[in-house]
């Protein structure tokens, strides 16, 4: 009964709109769970409800044995959850390195006095943060772009940077909201390879939303299919692929 993350009877209502209605699912440790569903089926709203951007109307989110329902987005990092966004939320007027180093804020215990006078304590933490960031950059293949401003880099690179930023906080659970959206198939494949590699190396648990069925089928270990805020089907990729309900939701009745 104790899974790594359990979402129980999650409800997200906005006025009369039931964006997510009584949805339950779970993830086990080190698993890659995919969430699929047609547009407007409430996938991103699930993420927003879990990570505290919106407060759930009802239901519970239990992470690692703790009830984290309605905790703020900022607290997620401290609990060990980090996420990416569907529409990139990176820092365009900062360098790639700074974009990644900002993720080390929670480990950086130097205070304002240290920062103003550049004390040895400040230097120690700054150097740690830099090494940590450089390691992630190396892992994600961004090392050569570290001093470039993010706004000047192509979209695929920016997606990669957001992923790297989510990784650098060293979470236990990573929520990826359409990591491959807007990428061509080659870029998408490369990014997925990277995600799987980082996952195996760091032992992350990942929940991923994506539309790209090919990617989902090849990388997800289990898939949750949603429609109009409700659970449509759940199972291994091949089960989902052959599920009549899922086919109906995607292709319409034949």
């Amino acid at each position: 009964m104790s899974h790594f993350l359990e979402v129980e009877h999650l409800k997200m209502y906005f006025g009369g709109v039931k964006a997510v209605d009584d949805l339950s699912f779970y993830v086990d440790e080190h698993e890659l769970l995919g969430i699929i569903g047609p547009n407007g089926s409430g996938k991103t709203t699930v993420f927003n409800g879990v990570t505290g951007i919106y407060k759930p109307t009802g239901g519970k989110v239990i992470f690692d044995g703790k009830d984290i329902t309605g905790q703020s987005l900022r607290n997620m990092v401290y609990l060990g959850i980090s996420r990416t966004f569907q529409n990139l939320r990176i820092f365009k007027a900062m360098t790639v390195l700074d974009n990644i180093m900002i993720g080390d804020t929670k480990n950086n215990h130097s205070n304002l006095f240290n920062a103003v006078f550049h004390t040895p304590r400040y230097r120690k933490y700054e150097e740690e943060a830099r090494q940590n960031a450089l390691e992630i950059l190396e892992m994600t293949g961004l090392t050569e772009y570290r001093n470039k401003y993010v706004g000047s880099l192509p979209y695929g690179m920016q997606k990669r940077i957001e992923f790297a930023r989510a990784v650098v906080v060293n979470p236990k659970l990573l929520l990826l909201d359409e990591p491959a959206a807007g990428l061509n198939s080659k870029e998408a494949e490369e990014l997925m390879e990277l995600i799987i590699e980082v996952k195996n190396r760091k032992g992350f648990t990942i929940i991923m939303i994506d539309h790209n069925m090919k990617i989902m089928m090849s990388s997800a270990e289990r898939i949750v299919a949603m429609e109009t805020g409700q659970l449509l089907a759940e199972g291994t990729p091949s089960e989902i692929q052959n599920d009549p309900d899922v086919i109906k939701a995607y292709l319409g009745e034949g």
Binding site: R74, I90, F91, M94
Partner: peptide, 19 residues
């Protein structure tokens, strides 16, 4: 870094733990 993060994208900054 935190200040600039807020300037460029507040939600993004909050999501990595910036108050």
């Amino acid at each position: 870094r935190m200040l600039q993060g807020i300037r460029d994208n507040e939600l993004g900054a909050v999501s990595v733990g910036v108050d």
